[in-house]
Amino acid sequence: MMLEVEGLASRYGRIPALSGINLRVGEGELVSLVGANGAGKTTLLRALSGVQPVSAGRVHFEGEDITAAAAEKRVRLGIVQVPEGRQVFAPLSVEDNLRLGAYLRSKAEAAESMERIYAMFPVLKQKRREPAGALSGGQQQMLAMGRGLMALPRLLLLDEPSMGLAPKLVEEIFACVRALKSAKTTIFLVDQNARAALAVADRAYVLETGRIVLAGSGAELLENEQVKEAYLGL
């Protein structure tokens, strides 16, 4: 298993946000996490990235215990997150945002990856000298994805990549997720668009108030009555 999480718990002050989280992501898999607003999805991804303290449990990445590893160490190992709400460096240029995505890599490696990102999202190339904050929401999401890919992720954590986007852009973002998947990138995906997130997933977990309450293949969960009722609006 690439990622193994056992008994993970996390809290904000004294308020628990996650408890007893067990999950696994295998190499090359696309695993989705669905859950209502405030269920703790973002908290979980942040804990995996080392920017949210954990109060119990273990996290292993490719066999190595990274429970206490610093955020930059995890990026170096290949755990890369595209955060909720894009979080681009607004006043910096599009190109600088991308270059910073490859902060831990050499200039030559970064240049090579940047060409790939520009080929994937030509609009970013067009706007490469503009401040990231001047891009539209969809373009900022592409930039956030591009910045994440610049780090050459082995495990890509995507937090709500389609949030707040028009339907056509949502489709584009999911097309991009599918393309990454077929290029064998391992992905852990959180999206409020539960139907789409389950449809692309090999496997998925359902999170409710900080606990995992269901797990199964994407297809299974799409057919699950509880899931249908709570998350698919059927």
Binding site: E72, Q81, L104
Partner: peptide, 8 residues
Amino acid sequence: LAAQLVGI
């Protein structure tokens, strides 16, 4: 946050 997530 984003700075930490790119490995700074």
